[in-house]
Structures are given as structure tokens and as C-alpha cells.
Simulated assay, not measured.
Amino acid sequence: MTPIAIVFLVLSILIVWGGLIASVLFLRGRADVAEYPPGEADDHREDEAIAERDT
């Protein structure tokens, strides 16, 4: 491998693994949602059946 290929390999590994580590650390700090969006008490989603299609 040429030196430039090794440099780009190391750079890409640092970007990928660094992004993974940064996202894990971010999610560790903000794991829970502070407030959920408002919704109705009963939105009747369980009343809707799964769509049945003839094949």
C-alpha cells in the first residue's frame, strides 16, 4: 500500500469509529425524553385492523 492509501485508511477509520463513539456518548448523556408530545387519551389505533390484500 502506498503511504497516501494508509493515511486515507487511518483517516476513514477514525471518522467512522469516532462518530460511533461520539454518538454513544451523546446518547448516554441524553437517553431519556424529557417530554413527550401531547396526544389523545384514546386514539383508537387498536380498532384499525391490518390491511388485508388479495395476492
Rank of each mutant, 00 (worst) to 15 (best):
M1E: 07
M1L: 08
M1Q: 08
T2I: 12
P3C: 12
I4P: 00
I6P: 03
I6L: 02
V7D: 01
F8Q: 05
F8K: 01
F8M: 04
L9N: 02
L9H: 02
V10G: 04
L11D: 05
L11H: 00
S12P: 01
I13D: 02
I13H: 05
I13A: 15
L14Y: 01
I15L: 14
V16W: 06
V16M: 09
G18H: 01
G18V: 01
G19K: 00
G19D: 00
L20P: 00
L20H: 15
S23W: 04
V24D: 04
V24N: 03
L25Q: 05
F26T: 03
L27W: 06
L27G: 02
R28K: 14
G29W: 00
R30S: 07
R30L: 01
V33E: 09
A34K: 12
A34L: 10
A34C: 01
E35G: 10
Y36W: 12
P37K: 03
P37R: 07
P38V: 00
P38W: 02
P38F: 06
E40S: 12
E40G: 15
A41E: 13
A41H: 12
D42Y: 09
D43M: 08
D43Y: 07
H44K: 04
H44Y: 09
H44R: 11
R45T: 09
E46F: 09
D47Q: 08
D47R: 05
E48I: 13
A49Q: 05
I50N: 07
I50M: 12
A51N: 06
E52R: 11
E52F: 08
R53I: 05
T55Y: 15
